[in-house]
Design a binder for these strands. Sequence first.
DNA 1: TTAAATACGACTATATTAGTCCAGTTTATA
DNA 2: TATAAACTGGACTAATATAGTCGTATTTAA
Lengths: 133, 133
Amino acid sequence: MVRFTKKVEYALISLRHIANAKDEIITAKQISNKFNIPYELLAKVLQKLKKEKILESNQGVNGGYKLIKQLNEISLSSLIDVIEGKLAIVECLHEKDINDCFISDTCNIKSPINKMQYELENLLKHKMVSDFV
Amino acid sequence: MVRFTKKVEYALISLRHIANAKDEIITAKQISNKFNIPYELLAKVLQKLKKEKILESNQGVNGGYKLIKQLNEISLSSLIDVIEGKLAIVECLHEKDINDCFISDTCNIKSPINKMQYELENLLKHKMVSDFV
DNA sequence: TTAAATACGACTATATTAGTCCAGTTTATA
DNA sequence: TATAAACTGGACTAATATAGTCGTATTTAA
Ligand code: SF4
Ligand code: SF4
């Protein structure tokens, strides 16, 4: 199937919400409550966005998250990278299991699949989170 | 994740193989052997292609499959439709579980997600199996 | 009559995704 | 300085989707 994961959706929802709040600090709990997103899961997603320096966090009472990148600087492609690792439309294009496909030797669709991956990447690379309005 | 299923890959591999064989009849077993694809699984994929009138089949001894559509008439989009059902990049865009997302009410990314789905569909619609060369 | 082939439904196994639990650390403020 | 609100992070479980298997039936050329 070709489907975005909930984690990616949660990231998009959160980024949009945080961006709307201007410079106000937003907590994971607020987002979790507002959008019915499981708190622990959301927390992990936000932590990843922090590690990638998309968000900035403050711990402790009155802590929370703040945007430190513009939404138009974050591509859907990079967001997926951050959350799920490098996208690969087939097994043999994913570094982790690049050698796992037992068809590989005789496969007759590798090159078109490569092209397809390239085109999809391109679409995602030019789709900015700011477009999500 | 965004990944094509093996079934779709098997369909592409098979179609390309059958097309290369010109009007010769090709059996599931031949494809299964040549490409190391599990026979039973492949058989089901070919049966679906037959139901969609992409392939024609003959039963019995010397039976097998033959193309009855041009590869440039089959879009990747339609192939995915046939094998996996209508593609939906998120839950709420899939008829089957259109009402399952408990975020739906407050969701702030529906409209951009819609656009994204449209653009992806468009990409897949214009990607013909014949491009897979 | 037999063997090679498709047809099809039900089943199991594996992998991925989604979600939970728990035990931290940090920090404002009462 | 005690407390509670918040982030951090690893290990775990549950749910779902994908991949593959099994068994049986049907068709048909030779
Ligand atoms: S080698 Fe061919 S069949 Fe195997 S993953 Fe790559 S494209 Fe798919
Ligand atoms: S409603 Fe929003 S969160 Fe739910 S599936 Fe649709 S896009 Fe995703």
